[in-house]
Simulated assay, not measured.
Amino acid sequence: MKRNALLPVITYPDPISESVAANVVGMAAQLNVALHILAVNVDFPPISSALSRLLLNTPEMIRAAEATSRKRSEEILAGVNRQASQYGVEITTDTMTAAPAFLGDTAATHARYFDLVFVGWEANNPTSRMTAEAIVFGSGRPTILVPEVVHPVPIDHVAIAWDGSRVAARAVADATPLLQRAAKISVLTIIGEKPLPEKDAGARLATSLQKRGLSAEAVEISAEDCPISATLQQRAIDLGATLLVMGGFGHSRVRDFVLGGATEGVFSDLEMPVLLSH
């Protein structure tokens, strides 16, 4: 049975570029998944006549913002359809609207009906970060962040960031279909950064994966002065991995996300495709 993946594209205020969306299509081709593109456009709630008289040109500004949002979604969906034809990816598209405060929630709710979610990532684009946070912590589905700087390559070597925690174990379980496709798996464990539940946690996971017929090895990494997320991503890249699997630490507090250090680091500086699971 073919797996189904979702790419949510929130078009307000700053959607991802067509090139980032094209990277997602390329990765969908590598993973042999059917891809559904959901454009979520902004729909401002009506304002009272009294308020509109006080705020000059507010109705015109709202109409302009909504029109720009729709135009951006049309452009991105057209570009994605062209890329899908080139890659041979089975693709469907849909468009929804939501108020500004509920754009991320709308995408996350829709994502719950798919096996996997892709989020296109652009540095210095608050909309892409908002989308990532909403999906990772609100959808309950494994989410692959796809950076703008990386072009699609075969996912044949997967690295796992492993600390023996619940969310790390959840991420490994969610990534099982991808691990089964990989020719090689590297289990990365940071030593000296924080207490681990077991001294041989990485080796135990590697052995467990080997018992399932997977080619896995444990790799211990000494903690460095740079952020943990940078250390994990750089070591994974150095080893030749094309996907990093890790647990997403965080919780919502009055609609603001309080993130773990490694998760915050990935959200701030994404260097490679990363599968996050919460």
Rank of each mutant, 00 (worst) to 15 (best):
K2N: 11
S139I: 01
L31H: 07
S252C: 08
R141M: 08
T263P: 11
L35T: 04
E122T: 00
V187S: 00
P142A: 01
T68R: 14
N125E: 02
A201I: 15
P8D: 06
D94C: 08
N81E: 14
G140K: 07
M272Y: 01
S165K: 08
E224P: 05
T97K: 08
Q30P: 02
P126Q: 03
S69P: 05
E90K: 12
Q86F: 13
P177I: 01
F44I: 09
G104Y: 02
P152L: 09
V20Q: 00
P273T: 05
G247L: 03
L55R: 11
A206S: 04
L232Y: 11
L55G: 08
W121R: 15
G79A: 08
T127I: 04
P227S: 02
I91R: 11
V149H: 14
L116A: 11
A29D: 09
V24F: 01
A21P: 02
S19K: 14
R204K: 10
K194M: 13
I16P: 08
L244C: 13
S19G: 08
R3T: 10
S252I: 14
S85H: 13
T11W: 06
N125I: 03
V119P: 01
N41A: 12
V80A: 09
S277Y: 02
L243P: 13
F249T: 14
P177M: 06
D163T: 09
E66N: 09
I10C: 01
R170I: 05
D156V: 06
T95L: 09
R112N: 07
G138N: 02
A101N: 12
L209D: 07
G248V: 08
D225P: 03
L188S: 01
E271M: 13
S17N: 04
D14K: 13
Q233R: 04
T207L: 13
D156R: 07
G79E: 10
G164V: 01
D94R: 11
E264Q: 14
E18M: 09
F118M: 05
S222D: 13
D174M: 11
T131M: 05
I221Q: 07
H36D: 10
S268K: 15
T92Y: 09
Q210V: 11
T97F: 13
G250C: 07
R235D: 06
L56Q: 11
L179K: 04
S73K: 07
R141A: 06
V9D: 10
R53W: 13
I62M: 05
A206C: 04
S229R: 07
A201S: 14
K184N: 12
V254F: 13
V149Y: 09
E90G: 10
T143C: 00
N125R: 06
T176W: 07
G140R: 03
P59F: 08
E122I: 02
A201W: 08
L7S: 04
F44G: 06
